[in-house]
Deep mutational scan, measured.
Amino acid sequence: MALNTPQITPTKKITVRAIGEELPRGDYQRCPQCDMLFSLPEINSHQSAYCPRCQAKIRDGRDWSLTRLAAMAFTMLLLMPFAWGEPLLHIWLLGIRIDANVMQGIWQMTKQGDAITGSMVFFCVIGAPLILVTSIAYLWFGNRLGMNLRPVLLMLERLKEWVMLDIYLVGIGVASIKVQDYAHIQAGVGLFSFVALVILTTVTLSHLNVEELWERFYPQRPATRRDEKLRVCLGCHFTGYPDQRGRCPRCHIPLRLRRRHSLQKCWAALLASIVLLLPANLLPISIIYLNGGRQEDTILSGIMSLASSNIAVAGIVFIASILVPFTKVIVMFTLLLSIHFKCQQGLRTRILLLRMVTWIGRWSMLDLFVISLTMSLINRDQILAFTMGPAAFYFGAAVILTILAVEWLDSRLLWDAHESGNARFDD
């Protein structure tokens, strides 16, 4: 018995066209964080690309023209004298008006014999932002004059995390709450300039795509075929072959399989920071003279006294001054041990922890910024005066060393310790 099946006739004509040209192939790229070699397709503007294995951002879609970056830099340069030299806060102490600005706080630190601690604050609040705007201006002028731009481009990517104007702005709020127990506070004209400078700096850093600047100024022929001998440069993120001198053909720094002496430098910085954190938390970090009496505060006791007036601000200072430094030390110690013992479990967790400490590390400088600003506000000789204690130097040095330890660690070593050939990683 035959089955009668109805015929289905399409209502619209289906047209099949042959592909007349070869589909576009992607360029081969190595991930600078996990060293995976993959094919990167062509990316349009405002599109980002991520590593298929570790999800690290390979290409950032946010990109401004150099002219727009230069305009932002010149605007920031105009704001800087007002943000640093004009009063941020006014207080009335014992019937006398006192003005506080950024430069005055750094000068008070240096004047009291601790120039190293003052230079830490100076670099993060004044030096690094000033280098940022002058570097962008150098790129703008240098591109037109045919100057060598490689050193500036190499420095810009590392400079971003040292620009800490946003953290200093939080420190202004913390210092205001600490001082309000002794005097009446009012915002100064410099505060508005400083807030504007923070906003412009944040926007500029978020749109400063150094890798795209490398592509514009020093374009290189990408690798179009897969080759395990391809290496990625950690300076400019170019994937290719080393030249005859073993250097990256684009930025001219040595092109090595792994960062040289990464573990040794990381261990040295980490152990030194552990040693410095002990006096930083045991010795007094601030000293207040009130009517001839002397009151010393460690980091913890200062947080407890701050909690009596504002528990939320005390929580912020606790996280930045105690929780973050010790968390960074514990995480980095764990990561280094996992590399030495070739741990194969929990790779995803370790990668996330490394990215976390990379982002939060700079916030530990908050305590030094609060001390710097408070020193310029309260300084009335023996009637009422505020000065920093010996722990300030140890704390600042420990924070900087932990930042350097994270920067010096080559994250690809975590993958080397893991089993080879993993296309995915999980716990």
Rank of each mutant, 00 (worst) to 15 (best):
Met1Arg: 00
Ala2Thr: 08
Leu3Trp: 07
Asn4Ser: 11
Ile8Glu: 06
Thr9Pro: 11
Thr9Gln: 09
Thr11Trp: 06
Lys12Tyr: 07
Lys12Ala: 07
Lys13Val: 07
Lys13Arg: 06
Thr15Val: 09
Arg17Ile: 08
Arg17Ser: 09
Ala18Phe: 10
Ile19Met: 09
Glu21Val: 06
Glu21Ile: 06
Glu22Gln: 10
Pro24Ala: 08
Arg25Asp: 09
Arg25Phe: 08
Gly26Arg: 08
Gln29Glu: 09
Arg30Glu: 02
Pro32Gly: 05
Asp35Gln: 03
Met36Asn: 07
Ser39Cys: 08
Glu42Gly: 06
His46Glu: 06
Ala49Ser: 06
Ala49Tyr: 09
Ala49Val: 07
Tyr50Leu: 15
Arg53His: 07
Cys54Trp: 00
Cys54Ser: 00
Gln55Asn: 09
Gln55Cys: 10
Gln55Arg: 07
Ala56Gly: 08
Lys57Ala: 04
Ile58Thr: 05
Ile58Pro: 01
Ile58His: 06
Gly61Arg: 11
Arg62Asp: 08
Asp63Cys: 15
Trp64Lys: 03
Ser65Arg: 05
Leu66Phe: 05
Leu66Arg: 03
Thr67Glu: 04
Arg68Val: 02
Arg68Ala: 01
Leu69Pro: 09
Ala73Gly: 07
Thr75Glu: 02
Met76Lys: 05
Leu77Lys: 03
Leu77Pro: 06
Leu79Gln: 11
Met80Gly: 09
Ala83Met: 03
Ala83Arg: 01
Trp84Ser: 07
Trp84Lys: 08
Glu86His: 04
Leu89Cys: 05
Leu89Tyr: 04
Leu89Glu: 07
His90Lys: 09
His90Pro: 03
Leu94Phe: 08
Gly95Trp: 09
Ile96Gln: 04
Arg97Ile: 13
Ile98Gln: 02
Ala100Tyr: 01
Val102Thr: 05
Ile106Met: 07
Gln108Val: 09
Thr110Cys: 13
Lys111Phe: 02
Lys111Met: 04
Gly113Phe: 09
Asp114Ser: 06
Ile116Asp: 15
Thr117Ile: 02
Gly118Ile: 01
Val121Gly: 08
Phe123Glu: 03
Val125His: 13
Ala128Lys: 00
Ala128Thr: 14
Pro129His: 05
Leu130Cys: 15
Leu132Cys: 05
Thr134Asp: 04
Ala137His: 12
Leu139Ser: 02
Leu139Ile: 10
Leu139Trp: 04
Phe141His: 01
Gly142Phe: 09
Arg144Ile: 12
Gly146Trp: 03
Met147Glu: 01
Met147Phe: 06
Asn148Ala: 05
Asn148Leu: 03
Arg150Val: 04
Pro151His: 03
Pro151Cys: 03
Pro151Asn: 03
Leu153Ala: 15
Leu154Asn: 02
Leu154Ala: 03
Met155Leu: 07
Met155Gly: 02
Leu156Ser: 07
Leu156Asn: 06
Arg158Tyr: 12
Arg158Ser: 15
Lys160Gly: 09
Lys160Arg: 14
Trp162His: 08
Leu169Gln: 07
Leu169Tyr: 02
Ile172Trp: 02
Ile172Asp: 01
Gly173Gln: 04
Ile177Arg: 04
Ile177Ala: 05
Lys178Asp: 04
Val179Thr: 13
Gln180Val: 15
Asp181Gln: 02
Asp181Met: 02
Tyr182Arg: 01
Tyr182Asn: 07
Ala183Gly: 01
His184Lys: 04
His184Asn: 06
Ile185Phe: 05
Ile185Pro: 00
Ala187Leu: 11
Gly190Asp: 02
Phe192Asp: 06
Ser193Phe: 02
Ser193Trp: 02
Ala196Met: 13
Leu197Gly: 05
Ile199Pro: 11
Ile199Asp: 02
Leu200Pro: 06
Thr201Glu: 12
Thr202Glu: 15
Thr202Val: 11
Thr202Arg: 15
Leu205Ala: 13
Leu205Met: 14
Asn209Cys: 11
Glu211Ser: 12
Glu211Cys: 14
Leu213Asn: 15
Glu215Arg: 15
Pro219Thr: 15
Pro219Asp: 12
Pro222Asp: 14
Thr224Ser: 13
Thr224His: 13
Arg225Phe: 14
Arg226Met: 13
Glu228Cys: 13
Lys229Glu: 14
Lys229Gln: 14
Leu230Asn: 14
Leu230Gly: 14
Leu230Trp: 13
Arg231Ala: 04
Val232Asp: 08
Cys233Val: 00
Leu234His: 14
Leu234Pro: 11
Gly235Tyr: 05
Cys236Trp: 00
Phe238Ala: 10
Phe238Asp: 13
Phe238His: 12
Gly240Val: 08
Gly240Asp: 07
Asp243Pro: 06
Gln244Thr: 14
Gln244Leu: 12
Gly246Asn: 12
Gly246Val: 13
Cys248Asn: 00
Pro249Thr: 11
Pro249Leu: 10
Arg250Met: 13
Arg250Leu: 12
Cys251Thr: 00
Cys251Lys: 00
His252Gly: 03
Leu255Trp: 15
Arg256Asp: 13
Arg256Ile: 11
Leu257Tyr: 14
Leu257Ala: 13
Arg258Cys: 08
Arg259Phe: 10
His261Pro: 01
His261Phe: 11
Leu263Pro: 06
Leu263Ala: 09
Cys266Asn: 07
Trp267Ala: 15
Ala269Ile: 03
Leu270Glu: 12
Leu270Val: 14
Leu271His: 08
Ile274Ser: 14
Ile274His: 13
Ile274Ala: 13
Val275Trp: 10
Leu277Gly: 03
Leu278Cys: 13
Pro279Tyr: 04
Ala280Met: 13
Leu282Lys: 12
Leu282His: 11
Leu283Pro: 03
Leu283Ser: 10
Pro284Glu: 08
Ile285Asp: 00
Ser286Met: 02
Ser286Leu: 01
Ile287Met: 09
Ile288Asp: 00
Tyr289Arg: 03
Asn291Leu: 15
Arg294Pro: 02
Glu296Lys: 14
Asp297Arg: 01
Thr298His: 12
Leu300Ser: 03
Leu300Arg: 02
Ile303Gln: 03
Ile303Arg: 00
Ile303Asp: 03
Met304Ile: 08
Met304Phe: 13
Ser305Val: 08
Ser309Glu: 15
Ser309Leu: 01
Asn310Leu: 05
Ile311Thr: 14
Ala312Lys: 15
Ile316Asp: 01
Val317Ser: 00
Ile322Arg: 01
Leu323Ala: 12
Pro325Asn: 03
Phe326Gly: 09
Lys328Ala: 00
Ile330Val: 12
Val331Phe: 10
Met332Leu: 11
Phe333Ser: 10
Phe333Arg: 00
Leu335Gly: 12
Leu335His: 10
Leu337Gly: 12
Ser338Tyr: 15
His340Phe: 10
His340Lys: 10
His340Ile: 09
Phe341Trp: 10
Lys342Ser: 12
Gln345Tyr: 15
Gln345Gly: 14
Gln345His: 10
Leu347Ala: 14
Leu347Arg: 07
Leu347Gln: 14
Arg348Cys: 11
Thr349Gly: 15
Arg350Glu: 12
Ile351Lys: 12
Arg355His: 14
Arg355Val: 15
Met356Arg: 08
Met356Thr: 12
Thr358Ile: 12
Trp359Asn: 11
Ile360Val: 10
Gly361Ala: 11
Gly361Trp: 01
Arg362Trp: 02
Arg362Ile: 04
Arg362Thr: 03
Ser364Met: 00
Ser364Thr: 08
Met365Lys: 09
Leu366Lys: 02
Leu368Cys: 07
Phe369Asn: 07
Phe369Gln: 06
Phe369Ile: 05
Phe369Glu: 03
Ile371Tyr: 01
Ser372Asp: 10
Met375Phe: 03
Ser376Thr: 14
Ser376Ala: 11
Asp381Lys: 03
Gln382Asp: 03
Ile383Cys: 02
Ile383Val: 05
Leu384Ile: 05
Thr387Tyr: 06
Pro390Gly: 07
Ala391Tyr: 02
Tyr394Ser: 03
Phe395Trp: 04
Gly396Asn: 03
Ala397Ile: 04
Ala398Glu: 06
Val399Arg: 00
Ile400Gly: 06
Leu401Lys: 12
Leu401Phe: 09
Leu401Cys: 08
Leu404Asn: 14
Ala405Val: 06
Ala405Thr: 08
Val406Asp: 00
Glu407Gln: 09
Trp408Arg: 03
Trp408Thr: 10
Leu409Trp: 04
Leu409Gly: 04
Asp410Glu: 04
Ser411Phe: 06
Arg412Asn: 01
Leu413Glu: 10
Leu413Met: 12
Leu413Arg: 09
Trp415Phe: 11
Ala417Ser: 13
His418Phe: 12
His418Trp: 11
Glu419Thr: 08
Ser420Lys: 10
Gly421Leu: 11
Ala423Val: 14
Ala423Leu: 10
Ala423Gly: 14
Phe425Val: 13
Phe425Cys: 11
Asp426Glu: 07
Asp427Lys: 14
Asp427Val: 12
Asp427Tyr: 13
